[in-house]
């Protein structure tokens, strides 16, 4: 699936996005987040505080405990600050 990072997550990770296949056992967005965090480095720094991470599955806001299902795109980002 395609994974996107925005705002300071993008900066800490050093990537705007990447393609990956979630490994067996990764069912929810939170589990994918923890799988990515375990890479350490910029990923570890970006995902250190789950309380400030939001996500969208196929461009719909969803809670982190949502199952990835058949989604083709997931985005991780901080709370939004538009307007």
């Amino acid at each position: 699936m395609h994974v996107l990072y925005f705002a300071w997550l993008r900066e800490k990770i050093g990537l705007a996005g990447e393609d990956l296949t979630p490994p067996p056992g990764v069912v929810t967005a939170r589990e994918l987040l923890r799988h990515l965090a375990a890479r350490g480095g910029g990923y570890g720094a970006a995902f250190a505080n789950e309380a400030v991470i939001r996500c969208a599955l196929d461009q719909e806001f969803v809670p982190l405990d949502t199952a990835l299902g058949q989604a083709v795109e997931i985005a991780f980002f901080p709370p939004v600050t538009g307007g």
């Binding site: 925005f6 969208a56 538009g82």
Partner: peptide, 14 residues
Amino acid sequence: LIDQLKTGAPFWKS
């Protein structure tokens, strides 16, 4: 709309 914009659309300010 202006209240919802601040929390309901994916924009980030720096």
